Simulated assay, not measured.
Amino acid sequence: MAKHKHEEHENHERWLVSYADFITLLFAFFVVMYSVSSVNEGKYRTVSDSIKAALNPISTPPASSMAFTLGQQRPTLMTQNLPGNKEVAIRKMRELVKNMKANSQFDFMHLQEKLNGDIVITIPDQVLFNSGEAAVRPEALPFLQGLSQAMIELNRQVRVEGHTDNVPIHTALFPSNWELSATRAVIVVRVLSELYSVPAEHLAALGYADSRPLTENLTLEQRAKNRRVEVVILEHAPVRPEQQDNAVADDATGSSETPQISAAPAPPSTR
């Protein structure tokens, strides 16, 4: 009797192997895409947070991106222990102002030494910024770099003041001239500190809007003079609030003590 041959069982589920390989490759593809997108998002958030910090409390994205990234690769301060040679540092700043003045053709850009020892550098706004913006122009960076080196040599307190004319501004970034002047001063301070290593504890930023004009705001030339940034290098460090509090406390302590009263000698008796 002939033996029946067993028919080979055909595997109808072999497609699952190819399907599983396809799903694995697809999963790997999406993992790679997600990782790449995460890196780009991180870089974007870094730049975004840096700009938002400068424009705080304004949360609207800036109209123009900055030509450099602040706070990422701060250079090492190489001249920490330089002697404060005032004459050499002032000569360097005068040369910087003279060269920048010749290139920008602004006659009212100047350096002034006051009687109290303060040094005031008046910089027209067009030297540092485009109209209505607070991003430092790339052409101004060499000037600020040279200025920062002289500041480090002087080792003094520096106050950066932003000023505008009386023409109102009302944009998403700058609702008024107060925001514009203050933001410009902050950006200059951050450039000096984060790009060129001027000690942050030596710097302060103030925005005055149009409250302290140099001249009237009747003509284009007069308004151009009032739109400026003034870098004030102080001869004497300002008194900090805690020092004032200590001085007041010392005065109060001294006044609360019982005064020593000496009695006058009695006149001699005539009897």
Rank of each mutant, 00 (worst) to 15 (best):
M1N: 12
H6E: 11
R14V: 10
L16W: 01
Y19S: 10
A20V: 03
F22S: 15
F22P: 09
I23S: 00
I23F: 03
T24K: 13
L26D: 06
F27W: 12
Y34M: 05
E41M: 07
K43G: 03
S48Q: 14
D49Y: 05
T60F: 09
P62W: 11
F68A: 07
R74H: 11
T76Y: 10
T76P: 06
M78C: 07
T79A: 02
R94Y: 01
K98I: 14
K98G: 14
N99Q: 12
K101P: 05
K101D: 06
Q105E: 10
P124H: 05
V136L: 13
R137F: 00
E139V: 11
F143W: 06
A150H: 01
M151N: 02
M151E: 05
E153W: 02
H163K: 09
D165A: 09
N166M: 04
V167S: 01
E179T: 07
A182C: 02
V186Y: 14
R190Y: 00
S197D: 06
V198N: 12
H202P: 09
A205V: 08
A205W: 10
P213F: 09
T219E: 06
R227H: 11
V231I: 15
V232S: 04
V232C: 03
L234N: 04
G254D: 08
S255D: 10
E257F: 09
E257P: 02
T258P: 12
Q260W: 10
I261P: 08
S262T: 12
A263E: 07
P267M: 03
